[in-house]
Design a protein around this nucleic acid. Structure first.
Lengths: 238, 238
DNA sequence: CGCGCAGGTTGATCTATGTCAAAGGCGGCG
DNA sequence: CGCCGCCTTTGACATAGATCAACCTGCGCG
């Protein structure tokens, strides 16, 4: 279930160590200790589109994405889903569930080729106990996750679909800060983006058309041009 | 802004120390250190119905409720609100915002007479740095908050109003575990409960009537009798 | 003792969004 | 090259819940 053939084992250990060492979680942590933690981690390279975590199962530890993208989604018994987050290279997930040792309440699916590293809970807790800097980083990551979820709750309950879309485009624009007439690329299919925004794909389609008919954006196959950042941001803040 | 007249100052310090020492956050922490932290905290006794925290302002630290109830609510510019949580004696709020030093994104209003203790961020961080047990507690509290918010997101986006109500009643029943035909008391006005559930008071009224017409509950002025816990739980889980 | 008001209920609409159905486009693979 | 399948768009319709408006009810206070 972990690494491949023994010939590539050494290479894999190096990859794991590299990924772990560069995580924000380990920023400022003594390299020896980081390496010791990495020793106890292992890598995973699940088939494309496979489940890494299934809800109601316990996590072996915190997951870090080495490359590729993992989709975190909340689901209902009847199959209805709501995408929570797309986790990309260098990011982690599962901190809260792993630390509490309670079953996850989301599914994690790989999207295409990807590799991830599992940092088991026990050594994480040990390191946190002996290294104040690490504990501090962990706290900060959890705190950030908390405020992110809070804004998620706010937008989900207090904002309209159009506002959520505006806010989302705005946040995408913040990352890919290319100058000029902002041109951003959607990180996934529109169907998936819709689920991320908590609407159906049909609704997203209509919302995009609406914003574009009002001159705020222009919609392409997979990229969006932001024509009027001002108004878009105003709509998002409303 | 802090304690009252100097005659009662001593009593107030004792109250602060007592509240702080009994917080889950300080469970298992050396009494000396807990006392030292308490030294640097202060108490607040805001007028009834007053704002303790207003969104977009920085928090001085983590808040703990000594007695009374504080209402945390997300709000929109136009005054529309969604209640997040009712914080009662012995509970805390503001951990994430305080630790990150970023402005709060909710309002905190006192409901009636109440007293709270502020634990300023700086000594919190210092204690976390020197005391692994405290840091651990803090992490766990943040992790718990994260999973709670996650379920909040799930129910808000994937469940119907009736399901949210069922789940809420279920959770109330879990606390007040009196035997026999479960009889629970609402912790606040129905209007406020409605806001907590993310619906309007009119809708809550209709939902209550619906559940009661289906024989699952029976509704009184301010208490609800749960007639069929089974079906209620099933509805909540759906 | 009656007034006034906050909270609650109820009924009649309205609206955003979901559902269902059908019909493009575009890309990949045989 | 052409067919097939996935994603997307579009239209007609259904529905949960909001909104608006009226009314009720118990309770505190003059």
């Amino acid at each position: 279930m972990s690494a491949a053939r023994s010939s590539s084992l050494h290479r894999d250990r190096r990859l794991v160590a590299g990924v772990v060492a560069h995580l924000p979680l380990l920023a400022g942590v003594d390299a020896q200790r980081a390496a010791a933690l990495a020793e106890r981690c292992w890598s995973l390279q699940p088939p494309r589109g496979e489940a890494v975590v299934r809800r109601h199962t316990r996590l072996p530890g915190i997951f870090a994405v080495a490359y590729g993208t993992v989709k975190l989604s909340l689901g209902r018994a009847d199959g209805e889903q709501r995408v929570l987050r797309l986790v990309t290279a260098g990011q982690t997930f599962g901190e809260a569930s792993a630390l509490l040792g309670r079953p996850a309440d989301y599914d994690a699916l790989t999207m295409g080729e990807c590799k991830l590293v599992v940092m088991p809970t026990a050594p994480i807790l040990e390191l946190a106990e002996h290294d104040a800097r690490f504990a501090h980083n962990l706290m900060m990551v959890l705190a950030r996750r908390t405020v992110d979820l809070l804004t998620e709750v706010r937008t989900a309950t207090l904002h309209s679909g159009a506002q959520r879309l505006a806010a989302y485009l705005d946040s995408l624009a913040a990352d890919h800060s290319a100058p000029g007439p902002l041109r951003i690329e959607l990180p996934a299919s529109k169907t998936l983006i819709a689920s991320r925004l908590g609407v159906k794909k049909e609704t997203l389609s209509r919302l995009l058309r609406q914003l574009s008919s009002e001159g705020m954006i222009s919609v392409g196959r997979r990229e969006i041009a932001i024509l009027d950042p001002q108004r878009l941001a105003a709509l998002a803040r409303a």
